[in-house]
Design a protein around this nucleic acid. Structure first.
Length: 877
RNA sequence: GGGCAGUUAGCUCAGCGGUAGAGCAUUGUCCUCACACGACAAGGGUCACAGGUUCAAAUCCUGUACUGCCCACCA
């Protein structure tokens, strides 16, 4: 495009559509596997959860990552920037259930030819389908969502290499996940055990410590009187009377004077008449309740630990569905001094959910006269699965665990080898690792996920022999143990005594997403590629998943490769709505990224995201989009103007043409800006770069352009004009490149007008990041020059504003006093200055004198009485 | 309860040892041959509070108070 034929107005929608397509067809974002590791920058991109739609929180953090990536690309790096979709988790499963009104029933046979159809609005019932059919429905739904996600990312201008994309439920991810499992198994780092586990009764699955959160709940203390065998009694204060039937001991602090005489004796539980030992236990807090408490199987983690340590009997009353199990006193572990009465009492509770059982128990206890007073309300913290709405219970089940507790010290050391941005985020990691109290439970009793590559031989009675698991061959991965046969068996032996059974569980989604660096690198498939891409350079992620994603990724890399997974981790903040709620969690999600892109442009949204530093939560504020849009418009207009000046002066120009002191001073300012920007980017502080570049750009438009305009028009001699034009050209090139990572569309558009050709770089994004050395040849100017000029400009502008005159109103006289040095410097720019403030050189008088404290000059401005300029011909509208 | 951040103009934030800053909002102007999707100007702050270090503190140290987040807290 020639400069005489530039677009009249800035039209972001057109520009963005045009360049998004061009970048794709030119392969601008493609990773080049031929280039060496040292020239490569590898991003371990977060795979967004596929559960419907992306929100402004995603736009925010992914834009920040893209800014860093684009700057690396301009530094000449071979960028590896893949995108993945996390589509194997519970959120996806739930979305599919709702979307098609189906439910997975693993017992059902596969129905060939069945296709999922979207459920009608308000459908209440759900159709039961086989596991395989359910997985097919998941595939259909995720494919559709992922198409939408990709379109949004392209529109936003994320410079992703789409040929590198993956999906966590895809074959390669299943393969890597299973390979990881087998590798850990070989290293002795994974085990299965039947033990009390954090269990979500709503989803009916085990969950890991990392997915648990505390929620405040209202409860009541119930004071129950226990009898002591051989006489005496004491009172226990409990919020969970429904667990009385599961009581296996009572415990007080070893130093608690009140209970010294009871230790070693036995108590009789009310209602159920179980004889339980009274034991000392350090976890009992004398200050809480009555200082003595029940150990139940299981009320909390302390119960589990005490029960395990003292090998107490198991009286499990909570079932996998959360209801109280039908147990019989007088049998097995449920001993009772009065089984008949116990069973009579318990039959009121069997089948109830904990909350109902709590109320019922309180009634029974009151009726039995065991309560010593009315219930006392309290607020307690209760553990919930973060995605669940039922309180977690401890239920003994068989689960797979990864041995992380033994590795705490190593994992702390690994975390410290990574550079965290901002650095204080390391603390969160450390605090999490230090507080770990359970191995990582990786099995989930769900359907849509990566299965374990494991089968169990069945003994003569058809019982699985869990201690002799049959593992898949590494070469056969991925396998589905419910569909595939273990090595050496026939399908006909499935489920029959002497045959085998597949492990029915699937892995925690983090077991897969903790391997994203290995997934991208094709670990186990392509060793050469893996060596080039692992470990990665940068991991961008949000802070609330430090304990999950960052932690598990560091863990897996340590276990598999004794390496950190990446060198830097960039932690983004959240987007908060004006009521200070996290946007992605708030109900009012009416603002969709698509709509905002339509209204404001991708560059405007990216501007908003890039104004926020890493780790810092940011207000959702449409005013900032407007500011971003305004900046892009200004770049469009100032560039158009500048290029018109360039085309008016024929021939090539270089910085050696920059001879005027004011131009040299400007170049020096740009040089400092470039230097600072490089440093800030190196420390991941892109926001500081944007702020500095933006501020310099406005001063370029408002002051420097005004100063050199006349000279660029040809008001002075040819050498002076060349100096102005050469400076403008170089400055514009520098600005476009400095802005390019932030505002990829407008900068690319403007670049294409001229510099794509003159610089032999078809894309600004493939142009080199500005180097301060470029300007090294330009001799240093008087450092105060620009400031002095601005003081004069501002004084005349202020006077004109005060007198309500136009900016071009002529100045009658301009008296300047200041230090001799300042005046000498000012003289070198006087011609430009006079032109910029409409004063004739004769109107200026200078004399040495004192300047005010806050300025370099003292100025007196008088305006002409009349504007006697010739009227400029009005351009047709 | 432990940890980490933050508290600067009406709002959103930058500055992090040397004369209080920006954008938005408010007010008043100006069609100026790139841009009215623009430009100029004005008003607006004892930089949460209290001590300390220093010639000098919004900036460093200590403490306090709020706010937010992360973690812990189930008798």
């Amino acid at each position: 495009m020639s400069e005489t034929n530039l677009p009249a107005a800035y039209s972001p929608a057109e520009i963005e559509a045009k360049w998004a397509e061009r970048w794709e067809s030119d392969g601008l974002h493609k990773y080049d596997p031929a280039r060496p590791r040292s020239e490569t920058f590898v991003v371990d991109t977060p795979p967004p959860t596929v559960s419907g739609s992306l929100h402004m929180g995603h736009v925010f953090s992914y834009s920040q990552t893209d800014v860093l990536v684009r700057q690396q690309r301009m530094l000449g790096k071979n960028i590896f920037y893949p995108m993945g979709w996390d589509d194997n988790g519970l959120p996806t499963e739930r979305r599919v259930q709702k979307q098609f009104a189906i439910r997975c029933e693993p017992g059902l046979p596969y129905r060939a030819g069945w296709t999922p159809t979207p459920a009608a609005e308000g459908t209440k019932t759900s159709e039961e389908v086989s596991r395989k059919n359910f997985l097919e429905a998941c595939a259909v739904q995720t494919a559709e969502d992922e198409k939408k996600y990709e379109a949004l990312w392209r529109r936003l201008g994320l410079s992703i290499d789409w040929t590198q994309h993956y999906s966590t439920v895809g074959e390669r991810c299943r393969r890597v996940s299973q390979l990881s499992f087998l590798d850990l198994r070989e290293k002795g780092l994974v085990y299965s055990v039947e033990a009390p586990t954090l269990w979500d009764t709503g989803f009916r699955t085990a969950v890991a410590q990392a997915e648990v959160e505390d929620r405040e709940q209202n409860g009541n203390y119930h004071d129950l009187r226990f009898q002591v065998e051989g006489g005496g009694d004491f009172v226990i204060s409990t919020t969970r009377p429904e667990l009385l039937a599961a009581c296996v001991a009572v415990v007080a602090h070893p130093d608690d004077a009140r209970y010294q005489t009871l230790f070693g004796k036995r108590a009789i539980t009310p209602l159920f008449g179980a004889s339980v030992p009274i034991m000392p236990g350090a976890h009992a807090d004398p200050e809480k309740g009555t200082g003595i408490l029940m150990v139940c199987t299981f009320g909390d983690i302390a119960d589990v630990e005490f029960w395990r340590e003292h090998k107490l009997p198991l009286r499990q009353v909570i079932g996998r569905d959360g209801r109280l199990l039908p147990v019989e006193f007088g049998k097995g572990a449920f001993e009772s001094t009065n089984a008949a009465a116990a069973n009579e009492a318990y039959k009121n509770l069997a089948g109830l959910y904990p909350k109902q059982a709590r109320t019922k128990s309180a009634e029974l206890l009151a009726a039995a006269g065991v309560l010593t007073g009315p219930p006392k309300p309290t607020v307690q913290a209760v553990k919930f699965y973060e995605k669940g709405d039922q309180a977690l219970e401890f239920v003994p089940t068989r689960q797979w665990f990864i041995r992380i507790l033994d590795a705490k010290a190593d994992l702390l050391a690994q975390g410290r080898k990574v550079r965290w941005h901002p650095d204080y985020m390391l603390k969160r990691y450390e605090q999490w690792v230090e507080g770990l109290n359970q191995d990582w439970c990786v099995s989930r009793q769900r359907f849509f996920g990566v299965p374990f590559p494991v089968w169990y031989p069945l003994d003569a009675k058809g019982e699985p022999q869990y201690d002799k698991p049959l593992l898949a061959d590494r070469k056969s991965l991925p396998v589905d143990p419910l569909a595939d046969c273990p090595p050496g068996y026939q399908e006909s032996q499935r489920g029959v005594p002497g045959g085998f059974a597949g492990d029915p569980d699937v892995m925690d989604t983090w077991a897969t997403s903790s391997l994203t660096p290995q997934i991208s690198s094709h670990w186990g498939l392509d060793p050469e590629r893996h060596a080039k891409l692992f470990p990665a350079d940068m991991r961008p992620q949000a802070h609330e998943i430090i304990r999950t994603w960052a932690f598990y990724t560091i863990t897996k890399s340590w276990f598999h490769e004794k390496s950190v997974p990446w060198r830097d981790v960039a932690i983004s903040g959240w987007v908060v709505s004006p009521d200070r709620q996290k946007m992605s969690k708030s109900k009012g999600k009416a603002v969709t990224p698509e709509g905002l892109l339509e209204t404001y442009s991708a560059d405007a949204l990216r501007y908003w995201a890039a104004r926020a530093k890493l780790g810092q939560d940011t207000m959702y504020d449409e005013m900032v989009f407007k500011v971003g849009h305004r900046l892009a418009t200004k770049i469009f207009n100032a560039s158009k103007f500048t290029m018109l000046q360039l085309s008016a002066v024929p021939g090539e120009r270089s910085l050696s043409d920059v001879t005027e002191p004011v131009d040299r001073a400007w170049i020096a300012k740009m040089r400092a800006l470039i230097e600072e920007s490089g440093k800030d980017f190196a420390s991941y502080d892109y926001a500081a770069v944007l702020i500095a570049v933006e501020s310099a750009f406005w001063s370029f438009c408002d002051d420097y352009l005004e100063l050199v305009k006349n000279r660029a028009y040809g008001a002075g001699d040819e050498k002076a004009r060349r100096s102005a034009v050469a400076s403008l050209e170089w400055t514009l090139k520098a600005f476009l490149r400095l802005f390019a990572p932030f505002l990829p569309y407008i900068t690319e558009e403007v670049w294409s007008w001229r510099f794509a050709e003159t610089e032999k770089r078809p894309s600004v994004h493939a142009a080199p990041w500005p180097a301060a050395a470029e300007a090294a040849a330009v001799p240093a100017a008087q450092p105060e020059l620009l400031r002095l000029a601005k003081e004069v400009l501002d004084a005349t502008r202020a006077e004109k504003a005060a007198q309500k005159k136009s900016v071009k109103w002529p100045v009658k006289s301009l008296e300047i006093s200041g230090a001799a040095g300042s005046l000498a410097t000012l003289k070198t720019v006087l011609a430009d200055l006079c032109a910029a403030c409409s004063a004739s050189p004769e109107a200026v008088t200078m004399k040495e004198g004192a300047a005010p404290e806050t300025a370099l000059l003292s100025l007196a401005v008088a305006l002409a009485e009349e504007d006697n300029r010739p009227k400029a011909p009005k351009a047709a509208a």
